[in-house]
Simulated assay, not measured.
Amino acid sequence: MQRALPLRSLTLVAAAVLAGCVNLAPDYQAPALPVPQTLPSANVEAATPLDAGWRDFFVEPKLRAVIELALANNRDLRVAALNIERARAQYGIARAGLFPTIDAGAGGSRSRTPGSLSTGGEPRYATQYSADLGLTSYEIDLFGRVRNLSEAALQSFFQTEATQRGTQISLVASVATAWLQLAADEQRLQLARHTLESQRRSFDLIQRGHGLGAQSGLALAQAQSTVDAARADAAAFDSQVEQDRNALALLVGATPPAELLPTPAATDPGTATATA
């Protein structure tokens, strides 16, 4: 009894250590965000862009089509999706370390002894089967090393997934901003062209009055400078529209079809008649 007691005590201590599996990793607590979790509202339940999804947030069909084209052509988004698959595979490998690796095998053999070599003078057949089952490798996770590796791989997967979502949100926002900027500059260009046409008509009236002696040369010069300023504004907005189209094409990864671009504002009927 005196010899068995120390052995039993050691067995109990070893069992307690194995059952406890002390984890030496520090307990991480995420710091509190400096912004409130919810924002005050005027009792109006409206879905945020993240909750509703960009397809529900943007209602313009042309803009939706351009965003879908950009998502299909963007290489950074493809790389982010591949990184998610890689992180998922790495997490599966790290988690596999928590379980033992079992190796199993089976085999069989059949032999024939000729009658000339057997005692009875007849051929004899012998069949033999074998099966193996063994534990090839297993690490006892005493201090939580394997569990921590699995948790790190899981958090890396979550990070990669969040990065892919952030890349998609950034791309959607950039394309929507560029498309709306193009739409706004298209309207400004139309307004500048209408202003130029109006100034030209005013200049023609003043020029006729000057020929009849009803307008002074100063009024004619002022009208000419106004026309030149309106022409410069129209040219500037024309250049800005081309820049917006190029920027949108870079974001989309291809030249968007003409039917997906913003439609310019409708021309005023009176202006169209005067221009014609």
Rank of each mutant, 00 (worst) to 15 (best):
E45V: 14
E45H: 10
E45T: 13
A46K: 11
A47T: 03
A47C: 09
A47F: 13
T48M: 12
T48A: 11
T48L: 15
T48Q: 10
P49I: 04
P49E: 11
L50N: 13
D51L: 13
D51N: 08
D51F: 14
A52E: 10
A52W: 12
G53P: 12
W54Y: 02
D56Y: 12
F57K: 03
F58T: 06
F58E: 09
V59E: 11
E60R: 08
E60H: 10
E60M: 01
E60N: 13
P61E: 00
P61A: 02
P61S: 03
P61H: 08
P61C: 04
K62F: 00
L63G: 03
R64Q: 14
R64M: 10
R64E: 05
R64S: 12
A65D: 08
A65N: 13
A65W: 08
V66W: 12
V66N: 03
V66E: 08
I67Q: 10
I67N: 11
I67S: 05
I67P: 06
I67H: 11
E68P: 01
E68V: 06
E68R: 04
E68M: 11
E68D: 12
E68N: 11
L69A: 13
L69I: 04
L69K: 06
L69N: 04
A70E: 13
A70Y: 14
A70Q: 09
L71K: 02
L71E: 07
A72T: 04
A72R: 11
N73A: 15
N73E: 08
N74F: 00
N74I: 00
N74E: 02
R75I: 06
R75W: 00
R75T: 10
L77V: 14
L77D: 00
A80R: 07
A80N: 02
A80I: 00
A81H: 12
A81R: 09
A81K: 04
L82Q: 04
L82R: 02
L82F: 05
N83M: 03
N83W: 01
N83K: 01
N83H: 03
I84C: 01
E85Y: 13
R86V: 14
R86Y: 03
R86Q: 07
A87R: 06
A87F: 01
R88D: 06
A89M: 13
A89T: 13
A89H: 11
A89F: 07
Q90R: 14
Q90E: 15
Q90M: 15
Y91A: 15
Y91R: 14
Y91S: 14
Y91L: 15
Y91V: 05
G92V: 03
G92T: 05
G92H: 13
I93G: 01
I93W: 04
I93K: 04
A94V: 04
A94N: 05
R95G: 06
R95K: 09
A96H: 07
A96N: 12
L98D: 02
L98P: 00
F99S: 11
P100F: 01
T101G: 11
T101I: 04
T101Y: 10
I102Q: 01
I102E: 02
I102V: 08
I102F: 13
I102D: 05
I102K: 00
D103S: 08
D103G: 04
A104E: 03
G105D: 07
G105I: 00
A106F: 08
G107H: 03
G108V: 02
G108S: 06
G108N: 03
S109R: 14
S109Q: 15
S109A: 12
S109N: 14
R110D: 01
R110H: 07
S111W: 13
S111F: 14
